[in-house]
Design a protein around this nucleic acid. Structure first.
Lengths: 252, 252
DNA sequence: ATGTCTTTCCGCTATGGCCGGAAATGATGG
DNA sequence: CCATCATTTCCGGCCATAGCGGAAAGACAT
């Protein structure tokens, strides 16, 4: 354990919180085992977090508290693009019947800022706040395609190119070729690269300097995402939505 | 500064994060001034939180990151009552046209877990994750009215009875009288006790032991919340919704 | 009752959190 | 273009305290 952060105690607590989220609650000794720390240390941290109301304790199990709901709601509504895109995303979900999504990049990963379920939407594990590698989604590819190459390189250096399904892109040069196509075409695809059986179409939201600040997408089961709907109809609907969002962003 | 928590460094960081939320972003020196700590200390904490991706830095200003969105979404969906109540709350908002809300108690304060805007809903500052003193809302009163007196006493000992508007209840005995009425009547009112011009009707969601685990409400402008609608129609609609939620909770 | 597992408590000790001070950085204005 | 001010960032030292081992107190079986 290198001294990589100024305040190590805070790092432990944050890792602890994220672990509790993954485990959906846990007791002292289970956390201690997972983080490879003495139970006494973990106990100190758990008590501190609980006293500060960032955890709740039910019996001997600690859970993350709704304190994070307040912070998360703030972090999201702080983004101009969220407020402006939300009604458009809802509209997109309604007219297509599928899932419609909004993603931003943060710390080099893709973050689902908002999602709306259309009337025919399939069940899916995607949820607001979910973080995924950029190259595994159409959304992320649309964002990367409209960022300077050196910035994308930095992100890849930091996070690598781990595969999520056997269709994920794992070669750096291959990725840049794809991004080149995406930039020229104006929208991007995801064909089972993150979730088996799911396809996705996405378009970037650009600022005045043609720099991607977000992306919107529609995703659905392979069976419905094909033929002209996949190659014409959906791309056009998404590009239209993205354009409306861009315009509303500049004049607001 | 008493040594009140086991890990003080964590406490500082958490206070820092909450401050950044309140300020909607800030730089090192502003945070240092507000928390009355040296800039060097604050700088250490900010850097740690940013490296762990719980903050984002834009220029010289730090903001809370969407990491909290993920944690908050988890904290919410962990609550059974949320999943079950959500469709009912949406329905309630549609049929009444007003705001419909779901609240739970956590660490002695009321937390808005979910809210839905009906077609006629007025603009309001209430948002998911918002925390309010229990006695200032109809929701909180419905919850307290269906908890053991000693538990309510403990909450009041901890948080006091600070007024939010001039209509807020500030006397402890008066509060218990009101709670007694609420328990007998089965639902509760809020008449401009939290927000000027707003009225609210709420009903508790009870478990098998008649212990309140949450509450649902409808809130709207005073002008529309009156006469039979306020005394008959809305209470009945809310009680019906609360009952549906209770039933679905027991059989699930 | 006995043993096992967990949480909680208790002090010691070495470490690293906290701080003052100084060096960069950058914004402002004459 | 340099001077001034307000930041942020870096640095080094000291001593409070975070982290830990160990032991006590519960919890829950068998």
């Amino acid at each position: 354990m290198a001294k990589d952060v100024p305040v190590n105690a805070v790092k432990i607590s944050l890792e602890l919180v994220d672990l509790l989220r993954e485990l959906d609650g846990a007791g002292v000794s289970e956390v201690a085992k997972r983080l490879d720390k003495p139970t006494s240390t973990i106990h100190d941290h758990l008590r501190t977090l609980e006293q500060q109301e960032y955890l709740v304790k039910e019996g001997d199990t600690y859970y993350v508290s709704t304190r994070f709901l307040q912070l998360g709601a703030h972090a999201r509504s702080r983004q101009k693009v969220f407020k402006i895109a939300r009604p458009e995303i809802n509209e997109l979900a309604q007219v297509t019947g599928e899932h419609a999504n909004l993603m931003i990049e943060e710390h080099g990963v893709g973050v689902f800022l908002y999602r709306s379920r259309g009337p025919d939407a399939v069940r899916l594990d995607t949820h607001s706040g979910m973080r995924v590698p950029l190259q595994t989604t159409a959304l992320g590819k649309s964002i990367m395609a409209n960022r300077p190459r050196e910035e994308v390189e930095r992100i890849l250096d930091r996070h690598g190119l781990e595969a999520v399904t056997d269709r994920s892109i794992t070669d750096r040069e291959e990725l840049f070729d794809v991004l080149e196509q995406v930039r020229e075409r104006g929208y991007s695809y995801d064909d089972e690269e993150r979730v088996k059986g799911m396809r996705c179409v996405a378009a970037p939201i650009l600022n005045e300097d043609d720099y991607a600040i977000a992306a919107v997408s529609v995703s659905g089961p392979k069976s419905r995402m094909r033929e002209e709907r996949f190659t014409e109809e959906l791309p056009n609907q998404i590009l239209k939505s993205a354009n409306v969002i861009e315009v509303n962003l500049t004049y607001s």
